[in-house]
Computed example of a mutant assay.
Amino acid sequence: MTKPEQVLIIEPQGELRFRGPFTGSPVTSYIKLINPTSQKVYFKIKTTAPRRYCVRPNNGMLKAKEIIEIAVCLQPFEFDPTEKNKHKFMVQTVIAPEGDTDDFVNDVWKDIDDDLVMEYKLKCVFENPVSTNAPGKPSETNASKADSNTTNGKNKATGDAIKPSLTPLRESEDMLFRAATKIQELKIEESQLRQECLKLKEEILKSQSILDKGANESSGRFTSGPVERSNPPLSLSSTTMIAAVVMVIVGYFLGKLI
């Protein structure tokens, strides 16, 4: 009896890629599971090389319209491009039975009918960025062997084998976090520069004030307050002449009246 068609959307499709170098620290790739249905779906992740990988989470449950990302961690090892790789992963899923109310995943898989289990396979591909070819030629390593139902059973290094995989959601979140952190650092630097600029302006104003004060003192002038200016008093001779003119005019008018 054929297996039922997979209801989950699984990314990437067909191949799970790991990019080296593979020594020193683990290399992580991701499997995204999307439940487009209105039903609850249980899942379980299996591999042909359980000692070489760490999968978190390796089983669980997806509610309707829910999305989950599975981290697949490849343990460090000495990469040999001539070694044939047969590592594969299989995603098993099953729709929650009618009337299912608990979320105990292990109990679900104990009593499930194998004919209801949906399966999806991914083969592992190792990409080593360290070139081992002749100078001027790009390094292309595909340690994945095709399935037994392929035409010749040999590895393929065609354009399909080196097409870029989808960007993992976690990588996008990391990039956003780093960008937010950088923006915050730039804001702090901007605030510090503003404070330094204000201090510099204050120092310039103080220096200018000291220079102006020194210049005023050397010239004998004081600029601490407004300078009141008064008109110089008229001399005695000028006052006498004005009084005489006024008396002549008054006498003229008195003569006219008499």
Score class of each variant (00 low, 15 high):
residue 5 E to V: 10
residue 5 E to P: 07
residue 6 Q to N: 06
residue 6 Q to K: 01
residue 9 I to Y: 12
residue 10 I to N: 00
residue 11 E to V: 00
residue 12 P to I: 03
residue 12 P to D: 15
residue 13 Q to M: 01
residue 14 G to T: 02
residue 19 R to H: 07
residue 26 P to E: 05
residue 27 V to P: 10
residue 29 S to H: 06
residue 31 I to Q: 03
residue 40 K to Q: 13
residue 42 Y to D: 06
residue 44 K to N: 00
residue 54 C to E: 11
residue 54 C to W: 12
residue 57 P to D: 04
residue 64 A to K: 15
residue 65 K to N: 13
residue 66 E to Q: 15
residue 68 I to T: 15
residue 68 I to L: 13
residue 69 E to F: 04
residue 69 E to W: 05
residue 70 I to F: 01
residue 71 A to P: 07
residue 73 C to F: 08
residue 74 L to R: 10
residue 76 P to K: 07
residue 78 E to G: 09
residue 78 E to Y: 14
residue 78 E to T: 11
residue 84 K to F: 13
residue 84 K to M: 12
residue 84 K to I: 07
residue 85 N to D: 11
residue 86 K to M: 03
residue 87 H to T: 02
residue 87 H to D: 04
residue 87 H to P: 01
residue 88 K to E: 02
residue 90 M to L: 01
residue 91 V to H: 02
residue 94 V to E: 09
residue 94 V to M: 05
residue 95 I to E: 13
residue 97 P to C: 08
residue 98 E to V: 08
residue 98 E to I: 08
residue 99 G to C: 12
residue 102 D to H: 15
residue 104 F to M: 13
residue 106 N to H: 11
residue 107 D to E: 14
residue 109 W to E: 09
residue 113 D to G: 01
residue 117 V to A: 03
residue 118 M to I: 00
residue 119 E to A: 07
residue 119 E to D: 07
residue 121 K to M: 05
residue 121 K to W: 04
residue 124 C to E: 05
residue 132 T to P: 05
residue 133 N to A: 11
residue 133 N to C: 06
residue 139 S to F: 05
residue 139 S to H: 09
residue 141 T to P: 00
residue 144 S to G: 04
residue 146 A to C: 10
residue 146 A to S: 07
residue 147 D to M: 00
residue 148 S to T: 05
residue 150 T to G: 12
residue 153 G to R: 04
residue 154 K to T: 12
residue 156 K to I: 07
residue 158 T to P: 04
residue 160 D to N: 14
residue 161 A to Q: 07
residue 161 A to M: 12
residue 162 I to R: 01
residue 167 T to C: 12
residue 168 P to S: 13
residue 170 R to K: 09
residue 170 R to C: 10
residue 175 M to V: 09
residue 176 L to P: 09
residue 181 T to P: 03
residue 185 E to F: 06
residue 187 K to E: 04
residue 190 E to T: 12
residue 192 Q to Y: 10
residue 193 L to F: 14
residue 196 E to V: 04
residue 196 E to L: 07
residue 198 L to W: 08
residue 199 K to A: 11
residue 200 L to Q: 14
residue 201 K to I: 00
residue 204 I to S: 12
residue 208 Q to K: 10
residue 216 N to A: 13
residue 216 N to I: 08
residue 220 G to R: 15
residue 224 S to H: 04
residue 228 E to Q: 06
residue 228 E to C: 14
residue 234 L to A: 15
residue 235 S to M: 05
residue 236 L to W: 13
residue 237 S to Y: 15
residue 237 S to A: 15
residue 238 S to F: 13
residue 239 T to K: 13
residue 242 I to L: 15
residue 242 I to G: 03
residue 245 V to G: 14
residue 246 V to H: 00
residue 250 V to M: 00
residue 251 G to D: 04
residue 252 Y to G: 07
residue 252 Y to C: 14
residue 254 L to A: 13
residue 256 K to C: 09
